[in-house]
Design a protein around this nucleic acid. Structure first.
Lengths: 346, 346
DNA sequence: CTCTTGCGTGCACACGTTTGCAATGCTTTA
DNA sequence: TAAAGCATTGCAAACGTGTGCACGCAAGAG
């Protein structure tokens, strides 16, 4: 397939052509470039010099065939209507490149990973699989398990066989509840994301438990689907409630929903935070926009990706390392969408 | 993972193992699966049946080595603080999968594509390169040219040797100007994106030319860097101007900037669109949020990606197809951020 | 009945790299 | 001085797939 009319500069260098030019064996070139200590410093220098001069780039595909490792990580993104996953992706691209890993973009969107997609996991001999809050079908999970492809889920604790890295959502929920309690709030509401996801469940659990510890219960619990629109719809519902039934503090378990809530409340003539405080979770960049200024828990994205890749690389090539779940502490970010405790506002 | 020490089903099927089970040659299996007409229907059926039963997935890397085509498309994303690129990415993932192409995520972010990144283009033998408004360094461009890797830029017309697909930004700019003129606006301002990008330049040119045709000139031209923050800063500047100098219509060449403008104006006590109309460009989902309702030109994302992949696939394996630039017409979306012409408002 | 034609299949090699093992030459030790 | 050790390099086989070529076999033509 080199091309019928023979493309001009088509002669892509290989280990063999380099070796021929140097008068050595191909294996010597290969070892020199891989840093094999058996090659003399002198020869290595010569090889490296010529490789640099010719702009030689090893054919990773051929390497994979021989060595079994492709350096490819399959990346599966969750619903990107939530900017959090986009930030996660960008961080993943940067850090993967720094580790000399490449990302194969398998899936992006709300739905589950299709079986056909899982096939390409195998076809491309990916070394591992990084999944951010998308559903991995049991079929796909089995494929990974059988073929010994490690799986790490970011921002979601797996039901299936896989490692995971996530923010400590429970503690984060508690932090927000404590903050709102300190601000003197009394009637609470929560807007869930995907009610099945561990992320949403844990945040709610931490929030509710902390309130319960202070003798407060609440039953305003709405599903918002982790979208702006879901948050907006919920906010509209609150805005239309009779004033004495309205909550005075709303916890949307994702910032993107909190933004929808804020918009809906304002359109409904309700002041934020004077009438109702709103807090979110994730710490997305948009939450800092002056029009919103969402008080939130910032997820440590860089650390999550970094530790996630650690988990992955530690499991590549071995089946002896057991699965692991790592929780990282998020950081409370105070902004104007929630009334502060008196002492903190001072 | 599957078993504790020894991987049980680890024996990944290959053409050879299938051939052995069937008592035929490996080449026969290969040909049968590739749909070679020389293989008898009967044999093909047998091969296909066994392949399906065993869940055989061909090793694409080995295929690449032999055939020269990897089925990999390198994807380079622009600054993802602009949601437009995220929408573009999602569409690309979907359409690439449908065409049996895989996306190798090379770059994401504002900066130019690094030279080291360009190396991986070669290492992974990508068939082509899809670039959405990120700068391709001249070094990287040369690498692609020399090694005959076709490059298609989406949403940007290249200075370098490459094909391109974009919205007709000039016409879109004209449409917006015509709309604002119809709405009775008289004093105009524009907020540019990246002042070097063809996208920003063309939109501005179409806008200014249409105004000029109606005898209107304007000199309020500000750089907003295609970010929310840039738009916000510009909006603040407008809000602080003396009332009689203020524009009554602002064109932000990207929706994300228009959102910043709207926020800044409102915070400054200016009503949109009663005092000042704001229009954007791109048609991102966030622009439809009730709090913004940005009048805009919707880029035909699906068609852009589709035609972009067309351009790419047509150039894979040949160096004879000349570069091509395709412009698609965008669609005017009327929302509440701009006063409408009387007849249209009726 | 023989020769040609064409269909279906197998053999062998190529793609570019890695890697176990052998071979070379040189230094060290007994 | 010979044997053994070490450092350095080459040879050749593998990884899994695609493909040019040749081979065997049956059917049709003369």
């Amino acid at each position: 397939m080199a091309g019928l009319p023979r493309d001009s500069g088509d002669a892509r260098d290989t280990v063999v052509t380099l070796a021929r030019s140097l008068g050595v064996a191909a294996s010597t070139v290969s070892r020199a470039l891989r840093g094999d200590p058996r090659i003399s410093t002198k020869t290595r220098r010569r090889v490296e010099a010529l490789a640099a001069e010719r702009g030689y780039a090893p054919n990773v595909l051929a390497r994979t065939l021989a060595s079994g490792h492709s350096g490819l990580i399959a990346l599966s993104l969750g619903p990107i209507s939530n900017p959090f996953y986009v930030e996660l992706m960008q961080e993943a691209v940067i850090q993967a490149a720094a580790r000399d890993l490449r990302l194969l973009l398998l899936h992006a969107g709300a739905g589950p990973i299709e079986d056909q997609t899982a096939q390409t996991l195998l076809q491309y001999q990916v070394d591992g699989c990084l999944i951010t809050s998308a559903e991995l079908s049991s079929h796909a999970a089995r494929i990974c398990a059988v073929h010994n492809v490690p799986v790490v889920m970011v921002n979601r604790v797996p039901k299936l066989h896989a490692s995971a890295i996530a923010c400590d959502n429970f503690l984060g929920g508690q932090d927000l509840a404590r903050l709102l309690l300190g601000g003197g709030h009394q009637r609470f509401a929560i807007i869930r994301g995907n009610p099945d996801s561990s992320t949403s469940i844990e945040r709610e659990r931490g929030f509710a438990e902390m309130l319960k510890n202070h003798g407060i219960d609440f039953d305003l619990r709405i599903n918002g689907g982790s979208t702006y629109e879901g948050g907006f719809a919920a906010g509209r519902m609150f805005a239309e409630m009779p004033r004495d039934r309205q909550p005075d503090a709303i916890f949307a378990v994702a910032d993107i929903m909190a933004m929808g809530v804020v918009d809906a409340l304002r359109i409904g003539g309700i002041r934020v935070p004077d009438d109702i405080s709103v807090v979110g979770f994730d710490g997305i960049a948009q939450g800092a926009w002056p029009a919103y200024a969402i008080t939130s828990v910032q997820q440590p994205i860089a650390a999550m990706v970094s530790r996630g890749l650690d988990l992955l690389t530690a499991r590549i090539g071995t089946s002896t390392v057991p699965d692991e779940v790592v929780l990282l502490r998020g950081e409370l970010i105070l902004r104007r969408s929630a009334r502060l405790p008196v002492r903190m506002a001072a």
